[in-house]
Amino acid sequence: MTVPIFYSISDDFTKYAAVSLNSLVKHANPATDYTVYFLNQDLSDEHQNDLHNLSSKNVHVKFAHIDDKLVKPIQNRKENFLRADFFTMSIFYRLFIPELFPQYDKAIYIDSDTIVNDNIAKLYNIDLGNNLFGACTDSSIQYVAKMVKYIKDVLALDPKKYINSGMLVMNAKAFRNEHFIDHFMDLLERYHFDCIAPDQDYLNEIGEGRILHLDPRWDAMPNENTEPIADPGLIHYNLFFKPWHFKGVQYEEYFWTSAKETKFYSELQSELDNYTDDERAVDRQKLDYMLSKEDKTENDPNNWARVKEREAVKL
């Protein structure tokens, strides 16, 4: 048996992914076999080598190129902007994992802005039952009033059950058997839902009622309103406050401990040192801009809440 783990990255995110991969390898069980796949469209040979060099005897690193035709229906339009800021196809790659890798009935997906602080096979061994996937409640938005309002009024979901898609334990067999990707594409092409978190909103809506909510230690996110989790299994530097751009970020020590063990440490340290206060102020403003979508989408006749009054969107 092998534990399959997937990242989706663009070339400019390699250095952060390398820090995450290093932490995953460090906490892997020597008696377990793991295969880590990097889904990408533009990863350079040099960066593939950098990531491959972090593999170990039982943690194998592979690369999967995403075919343009596969994702052609997902277009560069404002509805698909990540954090209402820019378009990146890579946020949607995770949805295609079950179709692209039919040899796996179960798979783990994690974002690249993460640190693995425990044996990730523990996640894989969780029994999903008939659920489509396991994930953690998005703790980073529970104190953001505008986001809570968006989840309630635009998505018509319970904010306490709204999951973050940066870590998923996927029931790949159920995704395939129930034609998840066909349903996703159908909704995308018919409605072009204007989402604050595009892939995440689709997962929450399509998976409603069939999401296994996991222990929050498996998606611990920096939060200025809460005490840190004492023993985080996976840390996710969600939204804008990245330890390579901001000092004093909650859980930053885990990132830098792993970063020091990679070839990218000095580059990352330099990135932090050279990031200006003006750039940090822009990052903070991006959060406000992201949330400004709420007013417009609340009145959209084809928002999630209105469409759900007319038809079922969940599987």
Score class of each variant (00 low, 15 high):
251 Y>D: 11
154 V>F: 12
251 Y>K: 11
232 P>V: 01
160 K>C: 09
231 D>T: 12
187 L>D: 11
247 K>D: 07
177 N>C: 02
155 L>H: 04
145 A>R: 15
226 T>F: 03
220 A>I: 10
123 L>H: 02
168 L>A: 08
202 Y>P: 09
256 W>C: 10
253 E>V: 02
248 G>H: 12
126 I>W: 01
201 D>W: 02
146 K>F: 00
167 M>Y: 01
230 A>S: 06
140 S>R: 14
186 D>L: 14
135 A>S: 09
198 P>F: 05
217 R>N: 08
250 Q>S: 04
141 I>Q: 11
175 F>L: 05
235 I>W: 06
153 D>N: 15
205 E>S: 12
242 K>R: 13
204 N>R: 11
249 V>D: 05
233 G>M: 03
189 E>D: 13
230 A>N: 01
182 D>Y: 04
239 L>W: 14
174 A>V: 11
238 N>Q: 07
151 I>V: 15
193 F>G: 11
129 G>Q: 03
144 V>P: 08
134 G>E: 01
202 Y>N: 07
165 S>T: 04
229 I>T: 01
162 Y>K: 06
213 H>Y: 15
181 I>A: 06
212 L>R: 13
228 P>Q: 01
161 K>E: 10
245 H>R: 15
172 A>C: 13
254 Y>D: 10
215 D>I: 02
133 F>Y: 11
143 Y>A: 10
152 K>N: 12
198 P>C: 01
254 Y>M: 14
125 N>H: 12
245 H>C: 14
128 L>V: 00
186 D>T: 12
239 L>I: 13
199 D>I: 06
184 F>I: 09
165 S>Y: 01
254 Y>E: 05
126 I>C: 03
178 E>T: 01
149 K>F: 12
198 P>W: 06
218 W>V: 05
137 T>I: 13
171 N>Q: 03
252 E>F: 03
183 H>R: 15
129 G>K: 07
225 N>V: 03
174 A>S: 11
233 G>R: 09
201 D>Q: 05
161 K>R: 07
190 R>Y: 15
136 C>P: 04
225 N>M: 09
192 H>N: 13
161 K>V: 02
192 H>T: 13
129 G>R: 07
246 F>A: 14
213 H>E: 11
137 T>E: 15
147 M>Q: 12
249 V>G: 06
127 D>T: 03
216 P>N: 00
176 R>I: 02
156 A>V: 07
156 A>G: 12
145 A>C: 08
211 I>S: 05
143 Y>T: 13
203 L>D: 06
166 G>P: 08
203 L>I: 13
158 D>Q: 07
204 N>T: 06
142 Q>F: 01
234 L>A: 09
245 H>Y: 10
